[in-house]
């Protein structure tokens, strides 16, 4: 396992879990092991074994890129002959070597994130936690960040522990856990999760959704889910089912679509909510913007 995805609706307990794993919070119950160590017994051991990229930026904006890395190296007890060559290699990978002596204040959000990734890997952690690493960044930049992450992962062999609201990021994971109301409701590979959804997903909108749902239950013995003014149903052979469905409904159909199940479908099935890319990123982009404005 190389990339572990940790998904869940807002308020499901993701940040709390990360807080416990990163030794920032004490668990109120249960047992935790990070890289084989118990954060409540050996917090410093866990701290040395992990790297963290927080949701919000955590760089010193008044220091240069290299000074931020130097600070990190010192508090992680790395001698100069160990961290300096590493810092150069990491900064070259994230394309910041030429800007190493510039004050972080002058960096864009994307550059700050890249610097944080380099910093998080400087002490060669066994697990790198990434809490919504690309939130508030535009799609191009997100792609950019991911190409760096993939490259670094190949070079360092570090496990990535990732929380995200983005479907495409979840798809990159080797294994995914979905948390809801503080409980893990699923733990599987993306394909394994998708196979839990029965075959294909049909989404339709009709003039009268309530009546259509009743008819579908009555005539095809299928359950439908209401979501944002559409009906969602799962069938085994979608292509063959659509003509039967259209013929069997007396309610006028406005739109109908068929697709392979996505992780979003799994997510909806398990938590009753969509991952809601747009809304979440909209709010968070605003928040990121506010923070940028208040930044020193």
């Amino acid at each position: 396992m190389r990339i572990f995805g940790f998904l869940g609706p807002n308020g499901a307990g993701k940040s709390t879990t990360i807080g416990v794993l990163c030794t920032l919070l004490r668990p109120s119950a249960g047992q935790v092991r990070v890289a084989g160590l118990d954060p409540t017994v050996d917090p410093d051991g866990v701290r040395r074994a992990i790297g963290i990229i927080f949701q919000d930026p955590s760089l010193d904006a008044q220091l240069t890129a290299l000074e931020n890395l130097a600070f990190h190296a010192r508090v992680y007890h790395l001698p100069g002959e160990v961290w300096r060559p590493r810092a150069e290699r990491l900064l070259r990978i994230v394309d910041l070597w030429d800007r190493r002596n510039d004050v972080v204040k002058t960096f864009s959000g994307d550059m700050k994130r890249r610097l944080e990734i380099a910093r998080g890997l400087l002490h060669q952690p066994r697990v790198l936690f990434l809490d919504e690493p690309t939130i508030g960044l535009d799609p191009q930049t997100r792609e950019h960040i991911w190409s760096y992450l993939e490259q670094l992962r190949a070079e360092t062999g570090t496990t990535l522990f990732l929380t995200t609201h983005y479907m495409d990021e979840a798809e990159r994971c080797d294994r995914i856990a979905i948390i809801d109301h503080g409980q893990i409701v699923a733990l599987d590979t993306p394909d394994g999760l998708k196979s839990r959804v029965g075959g294909d997903v049909i989404t339709l909108r009709t003039r009268d959704n309530a009546r259509a749902a009743a008819l579908i239950r009555e005539r095809f013995a299928l359950d439908t889910a209401h979501l944002d003014g559409t009906l969602r149903l799962e069938v085994t052979d979608g292509e063959a089912f659509i003509p039967r469905l259209v013929a069997g409904l007396d309610v006028p159909i406005e739109t109908i679509s068929l697709r392979r199940p996505s992780l979003d479908d799994v997510f909806i099935r398990l938590t009753g909510r969509a991952m809601r890319d747009e809304e979440v990123s909209g709010i968070d982009r605003m928040r990121a913007h506010m923070r940028a404005r208040w930044r020193r």
Partner: peptide, 18 residues
């Protein structure tokens, strides 16, 4: 307070120092 507000305090709090 600034460090707390702007996240740098977290970087310090998760570092392996007392």
């Amino acid at each position: 307070i600034w460090d707390r507000e702007f996240g740098f305090l977290k970087e310090i709090l998760v570092a392996p120092i007392p």
